[in-house]
Write a protein that binds this DNA or RNA. Structure first.
Lengths: 234, 234
DNA sequence: GCAAATCAAGGTTAATTAAGGTTAATGATG
DNA sequence: CATCATTAACCTTAATTAACCTTGATTTGC
């Protein structure tokens, strides 16, 4: 999975440099901004996964900035950093729409864990909205939510396993799906490696798709399967 | 607005007493539990706004407990408390579904702020789901408050279990409801796994819905059920 | 080089197992 | 005792395993 992108707003040059470099070493994409005034502008044409925001900025204060950010992108998680210790600041931070709050000095590992948590849960939310439920496969139509595969004439009800296997193949249609990936995704475990279970489901699926000769599940021995499907001319 | 109710699980008697009393002085409703084993059971007939959970419990560990809690009530926020300092614990905490993590010793003011934050955002989410009391299911109407399911001609009185099972299915209508989730939500325990109790209720419900062929409860073996319902043309 | 032998990955079909369905009987609770 | 919840006993079917077959790659012998 692609590592998260982080928008880090911090005016202290020494701390900023260290944090940026450490996070980058861990594989994150980091944009470090020292000038709070530029933030909104940049957010206009960039969608980071998360904001890490120092409260004590030279000109405008972090709470106000956070409110503005949330107005523009309500779903973008914001983690506050601050040297202050007062509870009232914490309250202000959350009231401004912040999602988490860390005191300086902070452990950078802890920051990373919290970044992962917030970025993931917001990603998960978006994911849910996005994933289209129905896709066209040749003259078939796969309805994920209702476990159905339909042709103009027919309706095939898929079992749980049927669906999971087909779904994995369909996500990678016209690309290789490694056997291992299938086993992991569907059975959560590749110790089924030498069992014939997967093959049985592949056979079932092939049978279902026999009506449309443009569709095939090609075996790539030692690798996996290629679910070949005519590209939709939309 | 009514103050939040807190389920506080902590085995240290001294700390527990102080925290409970302090929170109560602030107007919170606090139930302090020292025995982790009782938690799931109590959650069954009580809906706190938030859980505050010590990780180091005598018998079972907090991560496992958290996972169980989330299975039963996915929306209930959990804040972990711990004396440990390792980052790996933090990771485990979030992986177990925890929403926040505080190190002992912690400031009780900070705890309160975080409680407010998490309780509020989960309350806001629930709001969105708009727990309306009556919903239309095909030509049936489910009246949660009065445990009734009506057709134009008929009135079916639902028992407590009938209602809980149907309610869980109805919330996820046209999406998969995992068997485990049902068992956790309705029985608070998935050790009923091999009992036939749930199946008996499913059968009862299927019987009730026989009149409307567009409605069905599809079995997804190894996964759960899909309550298929015609989308309402609002 | 090259064909025959070998071997491992995957395919096919049928049998087996385990998840879930059905019905009636038994327990609990008011 | 009447209602609801659970268990028991038996049945059905999706999921898995077993047994055997096919295919394509790799090795071996010459």
């Amino acid at each position: 999975m692609k590592k998260q992108s982080i928008y880090y707003i911090e005016d202290e040059p020494y701390l900023g440099k260290i944090v940026k470099e450490t996070l980058e070493k861990e594989g994150y994409e980091v944009v470090w901004e020292t000038d709070g005034a530029k933030v909104l502008n940049r957010l206009h044409h960039w969608n980071p996964d998360i904001c890490v925001l120092d409260i004590m900025l030279p000109n405008l204060d972090g709470y106000t900035l956070c409110r503005e950010i949330k107005k523009m992108k309500p779903g973008l998680p914001v983690i506050f950093l601050t040297a202050k210790i007062e509870t009232s600041d914490l309250v202000k931070g959350f009231e401004a729409g912040g999602n988490d709050y860390m005191r300086k000095p902070f452990s950078i590992e802890e920051l990373m864990v919290r970044i992962e948590y917030h970025a993931k849960s917001s990603a998960a939310q978006e994911e849910e909205e996005k994933l289209e439920d129905e896709i066209q496969i040749g003259k078939y139509r796969l309805k994920r939510g209702s476990y159905e595969l339909t042709t103009p004439t027919d309706l095939i009800r898929l079992s749980n396993r049927d669906m999971e296997v087909l779904d994995t193949l369909a996500r990678n249609r016209n690309h290789v799906t490694e056997r291992k990936e299938l086993l992991m995704k569907v059975w959560g475990d590749d110790s089924y490696f030498n069992s014939r279970t997967l093959d049985v489901y592949i056979r079932k699926l092939r049978k279902h798709f026999r009506e449309d000769t443009r569709i095939e599940i090609v075996t790539l021995k030692g690798k996996g399967y290629l679910f070949r499907v005519p590209e939709l001319s939309h």
